[in-house]
Amino acid sequence: MLRYIIKRLAYGLLTIWFIATATFFAMHAVPGDPFNSAKAATPQLRENLRARYGLDKPVGEQYLLYLGNMLQGDFGISFTQENRRVNDIIREHFPVSAILGVVALLIASVGGIAGGAVAAYWHNRLPDRLLMMAVVLAISIPSFVIAALAQLLIVQANDLSGRSLLPVAGWGSLSHLWVPALVLGLGTMAYLARLMRSSMLDVMNTDYVLTARAKGLGTWQIFWRHQLRNALLPVVTELGPTIAAITTGGFVVELIFAIPGLGRYFVQAVQQLDYTVIMGTTVFYGAFLVLIVVLVDLLYGVIDPRIRLHGGQR
């Protein structure tokens, strides 16, 4: 087990190195550099700036410098916000994205699992039909359209009720959180509901459930002890990609609802060609996701004793 964990982690580190390298070279292929603004930029000024950010060195040296700094956990200084370190930017903005993501994930998992279970329970009856219709709709409308419509709906509701039921945008209180998190989690919720439904249907006809039924256990007991637990397993496997989708997919929601998360910051940084912020954010997200995948792998081993881990042969 320990060997497996170490191997997974070492492999994770290698993956992070790959992400860092890919990011570095992708960024250096971009035409133009960040030292352009509407007002005059004399050649002298540009030289001053390039020297300050080390862009005057050869690419190889820049790359080594960049890797070295990153090993020490230093992503450098933002190009556009000249007095802020990228580390500070991540430290300040990531928690926002994380809170939004976690709440979205909670809403998505609770809603998805409950929805899937309900649909499976009333298989091919009205609740199932309705839920599956909602699911198909939810994954067929682009998230930005849903987000814009949700915002419009809040405005209309506030308009009609004559008071402020929910804030339209912004960040800072619980009431700011629910709608963006719901919109963000909607696609995942639909996906999980589908997955849960089919997994439940599979479980429902297994021998152990039939045995339990034959033993005379109550519906609820069977549901909690046997069906739900086993049906959840395939859902847990999907947790890694799901978290990835939610954390990186958050930027549309963050853009529309004016939430100061890292995703929105990333889009801005791309538009302003803020090299250091782009590289820092990408590597950070990449590392974060690699870690999540490793964790989910290990978690899966813990939950399902059927999976034994020998040295990572998969």
Partner: peptide, 15 residues
């Protein structure tokens, strides 16, 4: 392992 949307944007800018 590359975050998909992030790298879509990144590559799109880089290309």
């Amino acid at each position: 392992a590359l975050p998909f949307l992030l790298f879509m944007i990144l590559f799109r800018v880089a290309l």
